[in-house]
Write a protein that binds this DNA or RNA. Structure first.
Lengths: 329, 329
DNA sequence: CTGTTAGCGCCTTCAC
DNA sequence: GTGAAGGCGCTAACAG
């Protein structure tokens, strides 16, 4: 019966190949500065293969003082934030480099980051909430921080990037002739950092385009709030709304429809995210799409550079966000 | 400078507390069958606290032959499957038990499950694709398998549960007086297991209600496919459609609107999932909501029971799925 | 009730 | 080019 035997170790492989355990390690790790005879090498790999040998990470971690795990501190964001795409994407991207992603909820311990740094000995830690971050991080564990403009920050989560996406919304509306513009913010407290960043970006962009008085409204993603928002914006004589994200924009479109407000004729609406369902609303939602695949690839390269102590690649924001023109503007 | 020192170990704590390393282990782990003097215990906890000691998991794992990681083999499902909610939920639920969730993409290795079982020595492995599963799993690593009706299977992913949800759709439609019913299947190959299960459930339920000829249509989640589906279903004289999920239902609603087909008057539509955006479509989508919070809680209890070698709790399907009556039926 | 010891699997320095 | 030995941090068996 397979799977009952003790897991094979380097020694088992060594014995089977007729060499020492050290040689096995050299061969399987391609240790630099160690030249092993081709014939020996073959014997070792063959034996390892035959036994189904896989290095046990715990041993390696203990020896090295560092695991090949990248820990991600789960932020308390609501689902549908694109967080899921990030999680899956990172896990997949990290894998070919030999790293795996461990999810650790913020609630796991008092000082999560410090705790994780010690107990998991991760190769790197990814944390989105900057408040978690500056704690004393023992040892030399690279840290990536979301939503802040500092070294070791992901492109897609940078404060500046959030601002630029919101600016894209405003600029598109202005390009289409709108001058009286409103901005619908999300009420969600967990999203505050993003909301602040985007609202600021929208305001700056508006000002640059000669619109000093961007009108704000705070709402939940629900029909009644959306109806109130619409009434408010229309009372202000606005002709266009930029929404914090698609989840905020979609109820606005739904509310418009229910109140016989025509979109975009009476009021134009632009979202941000590129959620699939935005394609099927009526009218279909014009929005800014964030390419999470490109994003997670960038993040991974960033993390890998930090781990290898190499200069981090420049934060290229091209291609991360893209306008999707549909019907709502 | 904090964080430059070597991470504190049991020996450091032992020295600080004036006891041996073993005693530290006993105290901090509350080792059963070991009675430690209250005074000693206090000295140890105080010292551990003062040093900011956290057990290094690698050492424990090596010693125990088992880590406190639960590995989840990432299925190749498209995003928006509710997979994200599962990932986050599991991570959060597992945490209080002292376990963390590691994400491993299917592509990580040839025989992922076997590989992970050996290299990570996880406390349990969660794998959704049954094709990955039956490989020889070395050692005694409990395995949970999705979308199959066998012991060690999650309630929310069971074949039978999928069928029951689809049956709920059909029964609701029949209860509302519909007798000519269509079923819109997703074309997505990665979803085939779910699609098959749900379609089967719908068919069985329909037959039980005296509808032997459920009409199927395969489509992608896109407007043109949805339009074709609508045409097809209407040509068959149907009055109601059950959709594989909300992501399939939403384009149907969008297409109806664009083609002046009234929902539910001309044709009723019911989804499955309870995606937030279903609330804002026009008409709002009637659907079956899967409570992922309840689900992940159940899964966690299941995994924990398996790990502790206790009888697994019965699979309670109550409360997992719930009808949300809105406007589209 | 507490301390000593040994060893989990791996990698690396040193000797050959 | 290869082997032997030690130790990373932790816990379980064994002494005291």
């Amino acid at each position: 019966m397979p799977g009952q035997r003790r897991r094979p170790t380097t020694h088992d492989v060594a014995k089977a190949a007729g060499v020492s355990a050290a040689t096995v390690s050299y061969v399987l790790n391609d240790t630099p500065g160690r030249r092993i005879g081709a014939e020996t090498r073959d014997r070792v790999t063959a034996a390892a293969d035959a036994l189904g040998y896989r290095p046990q990470l715990a041993g390696r971690t203990l020896r090295m003082g560092r695991s090949n795990v990248v820990a991600l501190i789960l932020p308390e964001w609501p689902i549908g934030t694109g967080l899921s795409a990030v999680l899956e994407g990172l896990a997949r991207e990290l894998s070919p480099y030999g790293y795996s992603l461990a999810l650790v909820p913020t609630s796991a311990a008092e000082h999560v980051v410090a705790h994780v740094a010690q107990s998991l000995a991760p190769a790197a830690i990814i944390v989105f909430d900057p408040e978690e971050a500056p704690e004393r991080v023992p040892h030399h564990v690279p840290l990536m921080i979301g939503i802040a403009d500092m070294p070791g920050t992901f492109a897609g989560a940078r404060y500046n990037f959030q601002k630029r996406m919101a600016a894209m919304q405003i600029n598109y509306l202005v390009d289409r002739g709108h001058t009286r513009i409103g901005y619908a913010r999300s009420n969600n407290e967990h999203l505050r950092l993003f909301v602040t960043a985007r609202a600021e970006g929208a305001m700056t962009a508006a000002a640059e385009r000669g619109i000093p008085d961007l009108v704000f409204f705070d709402m939940n993603a629900a029909l009644d709030d959306a109806t109130a928002a619409l009434r408010y914006f229309q009372a202000q004589g606005l002709t266009a709304i930029a929404a914090y994200n698609d989840e905020t924009a979609l109820p606005l479109i739904g509310a418009a429809q229910r109140n016989a407000i025509r979109v975009p004729e009476d009021i134009a609406i632009i979202g941000l995210d590129g959620m699939p369902s935005g394609e099927f609303s009526f009218p279909a939602l014009t929005t800014i799409h964030q390419d999470s695949a490109v994003m997670t690839k960038q993040w991974t390269e960033h993390v890998m550079a930090l781990i290898d102590d190499q200069p981090t690649p420049s934060l290229e924001m091209m291609g991360l966000a893209e306008l999707i023109e549909r019907e709502s503007v």
